[in-house]
């Protein structure tokens, strides 16, 4: 197999994905709304955390919304998704109920895992969302195994397997890539390169920072994509998904993105300058970008966007309300779901 690893030239688009960089006003509105939903949800989660209503670790997805929304636009509900602990955005994008997600964050009975999983461990078999994994990179072989099952069952589906620029250095990533290439498994490795793994910048952790090339040794094609541009993400995703559906095996997409908030909630943020964050927020924000496209293209107006903002806020407020009012799990839940009755 020829090794194909290309790096995007233009700022906003990956080269091979140029073919489909047009999105209709309707599509843009949908992506805008989905990204806004994730952002408002995450802001609310941060607020509830500050109030002591959410415990433990809580990893927000603010800044990275275009990645998951663009990827999701290229798959069908029958495809599978798996990711790390930074998972709230992925769950909302998969169509999971914001109430159930938020109530899991607050550790309540109404949460997706009845309060037994928490922020990092949530699943929805119904929506083909396979977690929510707290061990860095564990989801990579798991996602590869989901793709193995998709192939074993002779489906044309694929599995989006998301992980970070820190996770990329785990050995199991390469063990997975090797098997995926060897057996032509329909898995898309989506590297969310948000520049940092906790407080370690990518440069300090990775020898060779062109992460989309990491599959090269296995003959896996890779693309670097502007992960702040939902349309560029979608275009790259469509290409990768087609690659999988055609039976050509795995694909690597490196999404250049950025997280605005700390790694988890208690992050003193000494490893980067406030100006760096401000610069990305003001110049490359994925939501502002689509907002501008919508207004420039006359697809909508300020009033309509404001209205949409209110609707999204209402849904998030309702989720927060639900998450606070849902009762704590019954003590008997301690002893359920340890084993399935044989």
């Amino acid at each position: 197999m020829a090794v194909k690893a290309t790096k995007s030239k233009s700022k906003r688009a990956s080269k091979a994905a140029k073919s489909n960089l047009q999105a209709s006003g309707e599509e843009l509105l949908q992506y805008y709304r989905e990204m806004l939903m994730i952002r408002r949800f995450e802001e609310k989660a941060g607020q509830l955390y500050g109030m002591g209503l959410i415990g433990g670790f809580c990893h927000l997805y603010i800044g990275q919304e275009a990645v998951v929304v663009g990827m999701q636009a290229a798959i069908t509900p029958d495809d599978a998704v798996i990711t790390s602990y930074r998972d709230h955005g992925h769950m909302l994008a998969c169509g999971m109920d914001p109430r159930g997600v938020m109530a899991e964050l607050t550790g309540r009975a109404g949460g997706y895992s009845h309060g037994k999983g928490g922020s990092m461990h949530m699943f929805s078999k119904e929506k083909n969302f396979y977690g929510g994994h707290g061990i860095v990179a564990a989801q990579v072989p798991l996602g590869t195994g989901i793709a193995f099952a998709q192939k074993y069952n002779k489906t044309k589906n694929c599995c989006l397997t998301y992980f970070g620029d820190g996770a990329i250095n785990q050995g199991q990533v390469y063990e997975s890539m090797n098997m995926a290439a060897l057996w032509s498994l329909p898995v898309i490795y989506v590297i969310e390169n948000n520049k940092y793994a906790m407080g370690t910048s990518q440069e300090r952790a990775s020898a060779g920072t062109e992460l989309y090339m990491r599959g090269t040794a296995y003959g896996i094609p890779g693309e670097q994509v502007d992960g702040m541009d939902v349309v560029a993400v979608r275009a790259a995703a469509e290409m990768a998904v087609q690659h999988c559906r055609d039976g050509k095996g795995p694909f690597v997409l490196e999404m250049m993105t950025y997280r605005y908030r700390g790694h988890s909630m208690s992050d003193p943020a000494k490893y980067r300058a406030r100006e760096e964050v401000q610069k990305v927020r003001s110049e490359r924000d994925p939501i502002d970008f689509v907002r501008q496209l919508l207004l420039d293209g006359d697809h909508t107006d300020e009033a309509a966007l404001k209205q949409m903002d209110r609707e999204v806020k209402d849904i998030v407020s309702d989720a927060a309300e639900f998450a606070q009012n849902s009762p704590e799990p019954d003590p008997s839940e301690l002893w359920t779901d340890i084993l399935v009755d044989a």
Binding site: T144, A149, E175, N178, M179, L182
Partner: peptide
């Protein structure tokens, strides 16, 4: 391949399915 961590994770993923 000789890849215990990888093939075990892969098998567990297949089990999830």
């Amino acid at each position: 391949p000789i890849t215990e961590h990888g093939f075990t994770g892969l098998a567990v993923g297949a089990g999830f399915m």
